[in-house]
């Protein structure tokens, strides 16, 4: 790989110095709360400071007082409900729109894409009162369906872009062999679509895990809130106990960071390509 011609601002060492400084700025908040979480419970901390003795107690305390056994369970139930449901619906819809070219597919695609600019705020007000009428507030099902609806525009768009990039001969050949539509999807397209589906699933998991406003509104039962929603309310109760709050934040952040590190390529590709495609 020869060096790019258009990159002569500063030498390589300057570039690395800038990169390292930026990386430190990004990481500083993490270092800061992890250090804070390791101080003795209830202690006063000032700035970045190494604790006199490492104390893991805050994590246990935060887990118990923050009710995290229940919060984590609901977060998981919701995420593992939303991800398969939304991925399945998006894949089927994209197949119908891009490959089967259902009547009105252009209008329908446009309708889904428009959903990308709908702010949650517009949906959530009436959604709460609509679902209250049919008894779907305070229920996992209501939240799962609402999140799936909010995430569908991106998924349909993503899977459509993916299916459109497939060579058409593939579908044609299978049809000439007499395969039915469902067979074409399951046997021909899905086996080569796993990278796209993995990326979509990972993004959906992240959005579901991080969703706050919807859960705050739809779920009043404190035992069935999600981890971020629980944390948002935990802050109000223990606003002065920094080590405890820091530990609670680390607990909420940890699962998504683990997923991110495991699937980091999917994340970066999903967000950069998902935005640029089309």
């Amino acid at each position: 790989m020869r060096p790019r011609a258009g990159s002569k601002i500063g030498g390589v060492s300057v570039r690395y110095a800038v990169l390292v400084i930026l990386a430190l700025m990004v990481l500083l908040p993490f270092v800061s709360i992890i250090l804070a979480a390791l101080h003795a419970p209830g202690s006063q901390i000032s700035g970045l400071s190494i604790p006199d003795q490492w104390s893991w107690q805050n994590f246990t305390l935060a887990w118990e007082q923050g009710n995290f056994t229940n919060l984590m369970r609901s977060s998981m139930i919701i995420a593992f409900g939303v991800v398969p449901l939304a991925v399945l619906l998006a894949t089927l819809a994209a197949y119908g729109l891009s490959i089967l070219k259902v009547w009105g597919n252009r209008v329908l695609s446009l309708g889904f894409v428009l959903g990308l600019t709908l702010p949650v705020e517009l949906v959530v007000v009436a959604l709460y009162f609509n679902l209250r009428e049919v008894g779907l507030t305070n229920s996992y099902i209501g939240i799962i369906l609402a999140e799936a609806a909010l995430f569908l525009p991106f998924g349909v768009y993503w899977m459509q872009a993916h299916f459109s990039s497939m060579p058409e001969e593939l579908v044609e050949a299978a049809r000439i062999d007499g395969a039915r539509d469902m067979m074409v999807l399951v046997r021909v397209l899905l086996p080569i679509s796993w990278p796209a589906i993995t990326t979509l699933s990972v993004l959906y998991f992240m959005w579901s895990w991080n969703q706050f406003l919807l859960v705050l509104v739809m779920m009043q039962d404190p035992d069935r809130r999600t981890a971020p929603a629980g944390l948002g309310l935990f802050v109000g109760q223990y606003s002065t106990d920094i080590p405890l709050l820091a530990a609670a934040s680390v607990i909420v952040i940890a699962p998504i960071v683990i997923v991110y590190l495991t699937f980091q390529r999917s994340f970066v590709n999903g967000i950069t390509q998902g935005a640029v495609k089309g």
Partner: peptide
């Protein structure tokens, strides 16, 4: 990319 994947609630607390 890390800040982009975190729940904003936790970012706020931090």
């Amino acid at each position: 990319f890390l800040p982009q994947v975190l729940p904003l609630v936790a970012v706020g607390v931090t």
